[in-house]
C-alpha cells in the first residue's frame, strides 16, 4: 500500500501531515521531470544590441569569444499564488475515506509547501458559508504554519457561492497572481463559474481543481433513497435505479461543460476524484503547467 493513497492519507491526522506526505511524493517524482523551477534563473545568451542593459553583459563570454553577449533570465519577479478552497456544505460529502474538503485542504497544503519551499508567496482564501477567511500570500517559512493552521480548521458549511468568491478575489488580489480554485463547483448559478474564469482576463493565472466524489460520478445507489440537499432544505425520494441513467447523463454533461468552458477561458482544469492518489494529481497538474510554459 502506498503512503499516498486515499485510505492511508485518511489515517494521517491533520492537514499538515497529509500535505507534507503529498509534497514529499511530488518532490520524489519531480527529479525526472523537465520542470526546472520557477525562480530567477539564467535562460540563454543574446548578442548585445544597443539599448540592452550593460549590467547584464557577460564578460566571461567576451573574454572567450571576443563578442558582447547579454544574459537573459526566466522570471524577473516572485510568484504570488492564492489557493481558493471551497468549504461549502457540499464539500463535506464523502463516500470513501476522504471528503472533498479534506482532499481540497490536503492539496492546498501540499501546494503551499511546494511554493514556500521555492520562496514563492502562498496565500489562502477559504470560502465558508458565504464569508471568506483570507491569508495573504507570503514567501516566508513561518507563513506556512499559518496557512496550514487555517486549512486545518476549515469545516464544510453553508452554500457554494463561487460568484462572490470571484468578486472577492478580484478585489483583494494584485494583478498577475496565480489563483488555484479547489471546489466541487456545485453552484447552480450560471454566471458563477463565468465570474471565476473572468479572473483570467485580469492577467491572473487561474487553475481549477474540480473535486468529485466517486459516488457522484457513478451513482452507485440501489435501494429507494431519500436524498437530502446538503446546502438547503430540498429533499427527494427516488428509486436510484430508475434515474441512474438520466443522472449520469446530466452529471457527465456538467463535467464536460465545465471542462470546455475552462479550456475556452485558457484556465487549467484538473478533475480530481477523491479516491485517487493526490501526488499523481499534483504531478499531472505541474506537468501540464510545465508544458504550457
Amino acid at each position: 500500500m502506498s503512503l499516498l493513497d486515499a485510505q492511508t492519507l485518511s489515517r494521517l491526522q491533520g492537514v499538515k501531515l497529509r500535505a507534507r506526505a503529498v509534497m514529499e511524493g511530488v518532490l520524489s517524482g519531480l527529479h525526472k521531470s523537465p520542470h526546472q523551477g520557477q525562480s530567477v534563473e539564467f535562460a540563454e545568451h543574446k548578442e548585445y544590441a544597443p539599448g540592452d542593459e550593460l549590467r547584464h553583459l557577460d564578460w566571461k563570454a567576451y573574454g572567450k569569444f571576443d563578442k558582447y553577449y547579454v544574459k537573459r533570465f526566466e522570471h524577473e519577479t516572485n510568484l504570488r499564488a492564492v489557493m481558493v478552497v471551497d468549504a461549502s456544505a457540499s464539500m463535506g460529502y464523502r463516500s470513501g475515506a476522504l471528503s472533498k474538503l479534506e482532499v481540497a485542504t490536503t492539496l492546498a497544503g501540499a501546494l503551499s509547501y511546494l511554493l514556500v519551499r521555492q520562496q514563492d508567496a502562498a496565500g489562502l482564501s477559504l470560502m465558508v458559508g458565504g464569508a471568506f477567511r483570507d491569508v495573504p500570500p507570503r514567501a516566508s517559512a513561518g507563513h506556512l504554519n499559518v496557512l496550514l493552521d487555517a486549512l486545518e480548521h476549515a469545516s464544510a458549511e453553508g452554500p457554494t457561492d463561487l460568484g462572490s468568491a470571484a468578486d472577492h478575489l478580484a478585489e483583494v488580489l494584485p494583478r498577475r497572481s496565480t489563483v488555484i480554485v479547489l471546489s466541487d463547483l456545485l453552484d447552480e448559478r450560471q454566471e458563477a463559474l463565468k465570474r471565476v474564469l473572468a479572473l483570467r482576463q485580469r492577467k491572473n493565472d487561474v487553475a481549477v481543481f474540480h473535486l468529485v466524489d466517486p459516488a457522484e460520478l457513478t451513482f452507485p445507489f440501489d435501494d429507494p433513497t431519500l436524498f437530502l440537499d446538503m446546502e438547503g432544505e430540498g429533499r427527494i425520494e427516488v428509486n436510484p435505479r430508475e434515474i441512474k441513467q438520466s443522472y449520469l447523463e446530466e452529471f457527465g454533461a456538467f463535467l464536460a461543460d465545465v471542462k470546455a468552458r475552462c479550456a475556452e477561458a485558457d484556465v487549467d482544469y484538473e478533475l480530481v476524484r477523491t479516491d485517487e492518489r493526490l501526488d499523481d494529481v499534483l504531478l499531472r497538474f505541474l506537468s501540464r503547467r510545465g508544458r504550457r510554459r
Binding site: S90, M91, Y93, K100, D184, L186, E188, D213, E216, F221, D223, P224, T225, L226, F227, L228, D229, M230, E231, G232, G234, R235, I236, E237, V238, E242, I243, S246, Y247, E249, E250, F251, F254
Partner: peptide
C-alpha cells in the same frame, strides 16, 4: 417502508433526472 436518507451534493442533478424520467417511470 421508509427510504434511507442520504445527504447528497449534486441534488440539482437528481432533481433534474427525476423530472426528466417522471412520465416514463
Amino acid at each position: 417502508r421508509r427510504p434511507r436518507p442520504h445527504p447528497f451534493g449534486p441534488m440539482a442533478f437528481v432533481l433534474r433526472s427525476q423530472k426528466r424520467t417522471a412520465s416514463r417511470l
